[in-house]
Amino acid sequence: MEALIDSVQVDLAETEVRDLNSALHSPGSKAWRVANPLGKHSIACGLDAPLTVDIDGHVGYYCAGMNQHASVTVHGNAGVGVAENMMSGTVRVHGNASQSAGATGHGGLLVIEGDASARCGISMKGIDIVVGGSIGHMSAFMGQAGRLVVCGDAGDALGDSLYEARIYVRGTVTSLGADCVEKPLRPEHLAELADLLAAAGFDHDPAEFRRYGSARQLYHFRVDNAY
């Protein structure tokens, strides 16, 4: 309740997203609360300061895109590319997320409490993503760095063409993509998984997860790869 009192309140039924983002990019209040997002796109993108933004409802594409330093919480579902290319900070979605959640993210923590659709963590470059539910096909495609934790199941072609991103899945994996293999879950992995689950607010036992990573067989061009 204290946050409600101290926050700047913005109603997107009356205010343009452009005006909201402009205000969020300017020096001023550190706490914001956004009402009636109505599935609009690009809400709270390009933030570059340690702000706290709470969005009460569903957001469209690219919410919290390229976030730096800020903590953005969506009290609803998120559209395509939530927290895309995030550099730092935290983005939390209480509901489900559409495809390409956390795409190309370089850093920070993205928590999706529900399910995430296809291409979750595609081309991830250092971001940590923790999904409470399941994820869709082609997730972590070409993932370069960072960790993707899935408390539910993973769809087809998980980790296709993976570089050095690490993937942890608690449930089943429909299929692994090219050059993605299951790897041993060693103590250091259990430890980092425990840290990620704790940061995300989940209390699963890390030992229930399996680890997947790159077989590194596609790292150099060879005739066998030319299929």
Partner: peptide, 23 residues
């Protein structure tokens, strides 16, 4: 591209880039 799949999505992507850079 990893986070859009057609011209309608691209319009939204471009709007995002404009928002991030304040148009």
């Amino acid at each position: 591209h990893p986070d859009w799949t057609g011209p309608d999505d691209l319009a939204i992507k471009i709007a995002e880039l404009r928002e991030i850079t304040d148009w």
